[in-house]
Design a protein around this nucleic acid. Structure first.
Length: 483
RNA sequence: CGGGGCGUAGCGCAGCCUGGUUAGCGCGCCUGCUUUGGGAGCAGGAGGCCGCGGGUUCGAAUCCCGCCGCCCCGACCA
């Protein structure tokens, strides 16, 4: 059904996406009541609607983490500074982001405590006591918590000085088992992003310069936002024996020799909420994939008199029964229907049911989907099958649209000059052959602001020349401007 | 940390330059009536240490000094 010209641009409270994407994002987050500024610089208040959205991402991820054999733990938020200092690369990478607690009980502490930026150091230290034998391995831990990093340019959900996430930490007897773990958990993240959040992602290794401080290598899922910029939505790292050695975590192996376990870590954060906003939203506001939408169906009753109100209320009991397995909310507030339509569109609810006197008279309701505002009457008897099918369809349509968008904004190039031209005129990703040198990343960044996002695949030796410097390429890499 | 801007009602702002009785506007909020199929109208009402401290002055939101906080632009990151 075509959208009437007059039916666009309802939401006047938010800036337009085109032209001021960051401003649009900021407005949507606040007006849709996902989050708000807090009294403390760089931190945010996550409001109930935003937290419900996070829970709907968190819960399926928690199930995946448990299904893959991990157990939830909780480790302290305060970490002795000396713990962090034991792994050179790690402390070098995170030191600028430390927030310290130096006093307690009115006196200086003997040793400053760091508000955890991540827990590798604490967990390696603690597990020294729990891991004695190869029989104790693997140890598969996860924890849901908050972490602190002194970010310079805070953005709702994308970068704040305190954020929520899960961090998994595992310890294995062999390198290959640990590496399989890294890949397995990255795939869990891919599934959450694609199957739940309807955001297609690229997966692969990060370059040396983009990897996690202290890792042997890092992998990530990267999505494209509607401004063509890349957002890293989850990471999974292989540490080899780096942390085990730094924290003197050993076990007795099968041949009675002291061994260092191979460890991994992986995390996904509330940044996913920001990803959902930026991957699917439009000028009317949020657009939520049905599987994670806190409200999947909003019902707006329309009535003039108390009699009509009562009639609609009684018709609604049957409707709510039919939609038993769906997150339905009825908006009985004393506002005009038009106001409610706009507000729930701003909040991204996938499907709206309007029910008024005209509907009652013909035994139907009017169903409108957020996707394209397509409106159609549905007989009451068909709701039970129509609505779930519609939600499924919207979930798929959002994913396909995001996938088409990414494909339409991804090009293969083979020279720095072409890359410069692309990033000047266009938005999106560029794929090139690359030799892997950090100097090339620096050159590209200076010329285009783009950085390597993930390494797509290895190339046969000598098959192609690096797009940046012309040396023999070893990999195919994805470049993009990133959040 | 370097450059620019801003602090006045919950939010967005005017007033300041050129000091002067009761500090204003829009949105939002409260009450009532009329409304209700794409952001309602009218009437009434509540709400202010004018960022903080000091100074000048008979008198300061307004002028001067200091401080604090916030936002935007240049080096890190889930």
């Amino acid at each position: 059904m075509a959208v009437d010209e007059k039916e666009t641009g309802f939401v006047k409270e938010i800036r337009k996406q085109a032209g001021d994407f960051p401003g649009w994002y900021n407005d949507v987050v606040r007006k849709a009541q996902l989050a708000d500024n807090s009294p403390v610089a760089g931190t945010m208040i996550v409001r109930p609607y935003g937290y419900a959205l996070w829970e709907n991402i968190r819960d399926p991820l928690d199930r995946l983490i448990k299904q893959t054999g991990h157990e939830n733990w909780y480790f302290p938020a305060l970490i002795p500074l000396s713990f962090l200092q034991k792994e050179k690369d790690h402390v070098a990478g995170f030191a600028p982001e430390f927030q310290l607690v130096t006093k307690g009980g009115g006196k200086d502490l003997e040793e400053p405590l760091v508000l955890r930026p991540t827990s590798e150091t604490m967990i390696a230290t603690v597990l020294r006591d729990y891991v004695q034998s190869y029989r104790d391995l693997p140890v598969l831990t996860n924890q849901w918590n908050n972490v602190f990093r002194w970010e310079l340019k805070p953005r709702f959900f994308l970068r704040t000085r305190e954020f929520l996430w899960q961090e998994g930490h595992t310890f294995h007897e062999t390198a290959s088992e640990a590496e399989q773990e890294v890949a397995k958990m990255l795939d869990c993240y891919r599934r959450i992003a694609e199957e739940w959040c309807a955001i297609p992602v690229l997966t692969g290794r990060k370059s040396e310069s983009e990897k996690f401080a202290g890792a042997q290598y890092s992998t990530a899922i990267e999505g494209m936002m509607m401004d063509g910029k890349a957002l890293q939505m989850g990471t999974s790292h292989y540490f080899g024996e780096n942390f085990s050695r730094a924290y003197d975590l050993t076990y007795t192996g099968r041949s009675n020799e002291q061994q260092y376990p191979h460890s991994t870590s992986w995390g996904m954060s509330t940044r996913m909420v920001g990803a959902v906003v930026m991957a699917h939203g439009d000028d009317s506001g949020l657009q939520l994939p049905p599987r994670i939408a806190p409200v999947q169906v909003i019902v707006v009753p329309i009535f003039r008199s108390d009699v009509e109100r009562t009639q609609i209320a009684s018709a609604l009991t049957g409707i709510l029964d039919a939609l038993d397995d769906i997150r339905v909310k009825v908006d009985w507030r004393d506002e005009r229907p038009g106001f409610k339509f706009n507000e729930w569109e701003l909040k991204g609810v996938p499907v709206r049911i309007e029910i008024g006197p005209r509907d009652l008279a013909s035994g139907q309701v009017t169903v409108v989907r957020r996707l394209d505002r397509a409106k159609k009457p549905v007989p009451l008897a068909e709701l039970q099958t129509t609505i779930p099918a519609m939600l499924e369809h919207i979930q798929e349509a959002l994913f396909k649209r995001a996938l088409e968008f990414r494909k339409g904004h991804t090009v293969r190039l083979d020279s720095l000059a072409a890359m410069v031209g692309f990033f000047e005129e266009s938005i999106g990703f560029v794929i090139t052959p690359w030799c892997g040198r950090a100097e090339d990343e620096q050159a590209v960044k200076e010329a285009t602001m783009a950085t390597t996002r993930v390494i797509d695949r290895e190339l046969p030796p000598g098959s192609q020349a690096c797009a940046v410097c012309g040396r023999p390429a070893t990999v195919e890499v994805v470049w993009g401007k990133a959040y």
